[in-house]
Design a protein around this nucleic acid. Structure first.
Length: 869
RNA sequence: GGGAGCAUAGCUCAGUUGGUUUAGAGCACCUCGUUUACACCGAGGGGGUCCGCGGUUCGAACCCGUGUGCUCCCA
C-alpha cells in the first residue's frame, strides 16, 4: 500500500473515534481493576466549545487515556449543567424573537419552551468533544436536571434546612437588574471603571450655616439618602453633628451623624448615607436606626419612593439629576474618578446592592472540614499555590445566597400558608403529612429557583447516583474520584463547595487531586472573550490541522499553573510533528520489503539499538515522573524530543542501510518495537495519529488505545555515555566540515589522536557513515596539512581535498582557548580559596578538582593544535 | 485597602536541598544544503548584566531585605 505524501488527519480521526466507541473502550463498569475516575466539569448546556474547554478536556483525556494504558479501569463521566441564568436568558431571547414575552407566559408554559430549547440546541458541546478525541463514557452522560438529580438537589435542600444550615433572611444582596434576580458574591465581577465624583452641597438646617458638601459617585441615589455621616474626630464638622440638613431637590430633612467608618481624607470628609443602595451604608443604617428608602424598582428604574424621575433607568438619570442639581445650586464640582463597579457575571449588567428576602446556606459549619482536607493535603492542589487562595477564602467565608428569581432550575421546596408560615418539604402532600395543621389551608410554593452551583456541588456524587441511591455499587466503586481538572476561576464556586458536599454527604473527599489549568489568553495576553472577538474558531482549527495538532499545540504551550498565550504557530508545529511521524512511518515501510534474515546483526546497528533502548527507558521513567506530578507540557516536550531528535535524527540515521541495501530483520523488528513504544508514550496526547501508525506499521491484534504500556528496561549508563560521545564527535566534525566548506558529498580521511582507542572503536562504523569519512585511523602524532579540531582531550585531523582555511581554524581555536582559560581562572579562584577548601563538601571539592584537571588538559590540546597550524 | 504570584535568549518556558564544566529547551532568527522518509526537511551557528539595588555565604538565577514593573484573587 502506497502511503500518502503527507499525513491527512480528517478521515483517520473520524474512523478511529468510531472504532474506539464501537468497541466500548470508553465505557466503564465496576470490576476487579482499580478505578480511575474523572468527572468532567459540566459545561453549560448552552455552551459551545472554546479554547478553555479545549485545554481543560485535553488534559483530562491525557490523564484518562494514560490510566487506561496503565491498566486502571478509567471512567470519565460527561454531562452538562442546566446553567439557570445563562439558559433562561437564551430562552427569553429566543421567545423575544418569536414575539413572546416571558411575562405573558405561565411558569409551566415557559418551562415547556425551555425544555424544547434544551433538547434542540443543548449539548452541542458534547458532540464537539468527540471531535477532539475525548475518551468519555458516553453511556453515563448526565444532566443536572435529570429527574433523579433534581430530586437529589431538593433532598439536600430539605436536609440542610432541617439541620439548620439553610435559613431565610432579609439582607443586602447583589441584584442583577437585567435578569431580575439575586446573585451570589462570586457571581459579581468587579471592574475598574472611569467615572466621575460629584461634590454636592446640602442646605443645612442650622442658623448662620449655609451648606455641607459631600462627595459621591452615584448622585442618582441621593433621593434615598437618610443621613450625612462625618468622622467623630473631624473638627471641620464636629459642631454640625446632631444637626440636620436637607436632601437637594426633594428637601427631605436628614440627620448629620458621626462614625469612624468615614475616612477624613476621602472626598470632603462628609458621606451621604443611602441604606437601601449601598452595603456599607446599610450597615450604618442598622447601627443608627436610619430609614431605608428603596428608590429603585427590580428592573433598575427609579421607584415611586424616589419622588422624581420615576420609571427612568437609574444610570440614565445621572445626567438629568446633575443638570437639575446644578440649576438648584447644589453642584460644587465634578472630578474624574476611577473606581470599582460590580457587574453580573452572566448578563454584564451593573449589579445593584438591594435589600431582599432570600434563602441562605450557613457556610461556617460546612467550611471547617473542607478547609482541613486541603490544608492537610488529603486533597492535593496542583499547583500548590492555590492552597493559599483557598484558605484565605475559607477562613473569611460568608453565607451563600442560593435563591434566584428564575424559573429554569430546581424550584425551592418551600411552601407558604396565608399567614406567611414556611414549610420545607418536597411536595404539598409531604407538607400536609408532616404538618397536619396545614391540611385544608392554601399553600403556595416559593417561586424561586436554586443557584446553579447548588446542584453542581453534588456532581461527583450524583453522577453515580450516590445521593438518590446511597451506597449503590457504582458510588462505592468510583467515589472518591481521582483527579479534578478545572479552571482556577471556579475554585470557590465549585471546587470548594464540592469538597463541602463530599464531606457532608459522603463523609469523604470527592477527589484526591485537583489540577488547575491556566487561563487561555491571546497572543497579547488578553483573556479570550466574545466582545474582543479574539477566540479562534476551534472546530475550524480542527478541520484545518486535525485534532491531534490542536491538542499538541495547546499542550506544548501550557506549563502547569501558568496562563497559556495561545498562538496558531504551536498548532502549526503540531501539524509538522504529525508529518514527521508520518514520514518516519514511510521510511520503515520502505524497509519492510528489504529485510535480510541471514547472518548476525551488524555491530554498529547493535550499538545503536542498545543506545536507543537505554535512551527510551530513561525517557519512559522521566515522563512517568513528570505525569505523576502533572507536568504535562514538559512530558510532551520530552516525548517530542525523544522522537524527533533521538529516534529520527540519530537512531534511524545510524541504522539506515546504504543505498538499496537490505536491513537485518532483527534490526528492523526492533526498530518497529521502538516506534511502537514511542507511539504509546505519545498516544494520550495525540490519540488519532498514533493509533493510525500503530496499525500501519504492521498487522496488530490489539488497538494502541487499550494496549498496556511496555515497561522500561534497566538503563545502561555506559551505553548512554558512548552515544553522547558519538553525537559530540559527529557534531564537532560536521561543524568543521561546514566551516571549511567541505561539501557533504566529498569524503574525508579522519585521523583520531586519543589516549584510549576503545571508545571510538565501538562507534567507528557509525561515525564513518555520519561524517562521510573514507577512512578512520588512529594516530599518536599530528597529521600534516589537515584541519585539526579538539574535543575534550582528543584531537581530530581531517584530511580533505579542500584548501585549508588556517585563519578561520585559528580563530575558532583561539575562541575556544579563551573560553577554557576563563573557566580555569574561575575554578582556580575557588580552589585557591582556603575557606572553600575547608567548608565545601568532599564531593564538591572533587568535582572542582576534576574540572581543573580537565580544563588544563583541554587547554593543552588546543595549544598543541594551534602550534601545529 | 487586604492577600497571592510572577520577572531567566526575540517569544513561550525549564532550571529539583545554594556547588554537575563561567545558564538549558522549543519556536523564531542566520549560514549552508534539494544525498530516494520528510523543505511541513536536514546539518551547523549566533543570541542571555538570570528586572535594579543592598545583604547572607568560601560560593547566589536559587536564600533574605528593598525598589520597580506586571498578573490574579478578595473587599
Amino acid at each position: 500500500m502506497e502511503l500518502s505524501k503527507n499525513y491527512i488527519p480528517g478521515e483517520v480521526e473520524t474512523k478511529w473515534y468510531k472504532h474506539w466507541v464501537d468497541n466500548g473502550y470508553f465505557h466503564s463498569e465496576p470490576n476487579e481493576k482499580k478505578a480511575y475516575t474523572v468527572v468532567i466539569p459540566p459545561p453549560n448546556v448552552t455552551g459551545v466549545l472554546h479554547m478553555g474547554h479545549c485545554l481543560n478536556n485535553t488534559i483530562q483525556d491525557i490523564l484518562v487515556r494514560r490510566a487506561r494504558m496503565q491498566g486502571y479501569n478509567p471512567c470519565w463521566v460527561p454531562g452538562t449543567d442546566h446553567a439557570s441564568i445563562a439558559t433562561e436568558a437564551k430562552v427569553v431571547a429566543m421567545l423575544r424573537e418569536r414575539g413572546i414575552t416571558k411575562s405573558s407566559l405561565s411558569r409551566d408554559e415557559f418551562l415547556g419552551y425551555a425544555w424544547e430549547w434544551k433538547e434542540k440546541y443543548g449539548g452541542i458541546i458534547l458532540q464537539q468533544l468527540r471531535k477532539m478525541g475525548c475518551s468519555l463514557d458516553w453511556e453515563r452522560t448526565s444532566f443536572t436536571m435529570d429527574p433523579a438529580y433534581y430530586e437529589s438537589v431538593i433532598k439536600v435542600f430539605i436536609d440542610l434546612y432541617n439541620k439548620g444550615k439553610i435559613y431565610r433572611g432579609k439582607r443586602m444582596i447583589n441584584w442583577d437588574v437585567r435578569a431580575k434576580t439575586a446573585l451570589s458574591d462570586e457571581e459579581v465581577i468587579h471592574k475598574e471603571v472611569n467615572g466621575k465624583i460629584y461634590h454636592l452641597r446640602y442646605k443645612l438646617d442650622v442658623p448662620g450655616e449655609e451648606y455641607i458638601t459631600i462627595a459621591t459617585v452615584r448622585p442618582e441615589t441621593i433621593l434615598g439618602d437618610s443621613a450625612i455621616c462625618v468622622h467623630p474626630d473631624d473638627t471641620r464638622y464636629s459642631h454640625l453633628v446632631g444637626k440636620f440638613a436637607f436632601v437637594p431637590l426633594i428637601n427631605r430633612r436628614i440627620p448629620i451623624i458621626a462614625d469612624d467608618y468615614v475616612e477624613i481624607e476621602f472626598g470632603t470628609g462628609a458621606l451621604k448615607v443611602t441604606p437601601a443602595h449601598d452595603m456599607n451604608d446599610f450597615q450604618l443604617g442598622q447601627k443608627y436606626n436610619l430609614e431605608i428608602i428603596d428608590t429603585m424598582n427590580d428592573d433598575g428604574t427609579m421607584s415611586e419612593a424616589a419622588q422624581l424621575y420615576i420609571g427612568q433607568d437609574r444610570i440614565e438619570v445621572r445626567k438629568p439629576i446633575i443638570k437639575d442639581l446644578e440649576a438648584a445650586g447644589n453642584l460644587v464640582k465634578i472630578e474624574d474618578y476611577v473606581h470599582q463597579v460590580g457587574f453580573s457575571e452572566r448578563t454584564d449588567a451593573i449589579v445593584e446592592p438591594r435589600l431582599s428576602l432570600q434563602w441562605w446556606v450557613d457556610m461556617k459549619q460546612l467550611a471547617a472540614p473542607a478547609l482541613d482536607v486541603v490544608m492537610s493535603d488529603e486533597i492535593s492542589f496542583h499547583p500548590a499555590k492555590f492552597k493559599n487562595v483557598y484558605r484565605h477564602w475559607m477562613e473569611n467565608i460568608k453565607d451563600w445566597c442560593i435563591s434566584r428569581q428564575l424559573w429554569w432550575g430546581h424550584r425551592i421546596p418551600a411552601w407558604y400558608d396565608e399567614d406567611g408560615n414556611v414549610y420545607v418539604e418536597a411536595s404539598i402532600e409531604k407538607v400536609n403529612e408532616k404538618y397536619p395543621e396545614t391540611k385544608g389551608k392554601t399553600l403556595t410554593q416559593d417561586s424561586d429557583c436554586l443557584d446553579t452551583w447548588f446542584s453542581s456541588w453534588l456532581w461527583p456524587i450524583e453522577v453515580f447516583k450516590g445521593m438518590s441511591n446511597p451506597g449503590n455499587a457504582e458510588i462505592n466503586y468510583y467515589y472518591p474520584t481521582s483527579t479534578l481538572v478545572t479552571a482556577p476561576e471556579i475554585i470557590f464556586f465549585w471546587v470548594a463547595r464540592m469538597i463541602m458536599a463530599g464531606e457532608e454527604y459522603m463523609g469523604k473527599i470527592p477527589f484526591k487531586d485537583v489540577y488547575f489549568t491556566g487561563i487561555v489568553r491571546d497572543k497579547q495576553g488578553r483573556k479570550m472573550s466574545k466582545s474582543l472577538g479574539n477566540s479562534p474558531d476551534l472546530l475550524g482549527l480542527i478541520d484545518q490541522y486535525g485534532a491531534d495538532a490542536v491538542r499538541f499545540g495547546i499542550m506544548i504551550a501550557s506549563p502547569a499553573g501558568n496562563d497559556l498565550l495561545f498562538d496558531d504557530s504551536t498548532i502549526e508545529q503540531g501539524k509538522n510533528f504529525n508529518n514527521k511521524l508520518w514520514n518516519a512511518t514511510k521510511l520503515l515501510k520502505m524497509w519492510e520489503t528489504r529485510q535480510n534474515k541471514e547472518g548476525v546483526i551488524p555491530q554498529d546497528a547493535a550499538f545503536a539499538m542498545d543506545w536507543f533502548q537505554a535512551k527510551l527507558s530513561a525517557t519512559q521513567l522521566q515522563v512517568d515522573e513528570m505525569l505523576k506530578t502533572f507536568r504535562l507540557s514538559e512530558a510532551l516536550k520530552t516525548i517530542y524530543g525523544l522522537f524527533w531528535d533521538d529516534y529520527c535524527s540519530w537512531y534511524l540515521e545510524w541504522i539506515k542501510p546504504g543505498f538499496e541495501q537490505p536491513i537485518h530483520q532483527g534490526v528492523y523488528e526492533k526498530t518497529l518495537e521502538f516506534y511502537d513504544a514511542l507511539l504509546q508514550l505519545l498516544h494520550p496526547f495525540m490519540p488519532f495519529i498514533t493509533e493510525e501508525i500503530h496499525h500501519t506499521l504492521k498487522a496488530q491484534t490489539e488497538d494502541l488505545c487499550v494496549k498496556a504500556y511496555t515497561s522500561p528496561t534497566h538503563v545502561d549508563e555506559s551505553v548512554l555515555k558512548a552515544g553522547e560521545l558519538l553525537q559530540n564527535v559527529i557534531s564537532t566534525l560536521r561543524d568543521a566540515r561546514n566551516k571549511n566548506q567541505i561539501k557533504p558529498k566529498d569524503a574525508i580521511e579522519l585521523h583520531i589522536q586519543t589516549e584510549l582507542n576503545a571508545p571510538y572503536q565501538i562507534i567507528q562504523n557509525i561515525l564513518t557513515k555520519q561524517v562521510n569519512a573514507a577512512s578512520v585511523q588512529y594516530t599518536s602524532a599530528a597529521i600534516g596539512s589537515s584541519i585539526v579540531v579538539a574535543l575534550e582531550k582528543d584531537k581530530f585531523y581531517i584530511v580533505a581535498d579542500q584548501a585549508i582555511d588556517t585563519a578561520s581554524l585559528k580563530e575558532n581555536l583561539l575562541k575556544d582557548l579563551a573560553h577554557q582559560q576563563g573557566f580555569l581562572v574561575s575554578v582556580d579562584k575557588k580552589l585557591g580559596n582556603e575557606k572553600f577548601v575547608q567548608n565545601a563538601k568532599p564531593e564538591v571539592l572533587a568535582i572542582e578538582q576534576k574540572k581543573k584537571a580537565d580544563a588544563i588538559a583541554r587547554i593543552q590540546t588546543i595549544e598543541e593544535s594551534l602550534a601545529q597550524l
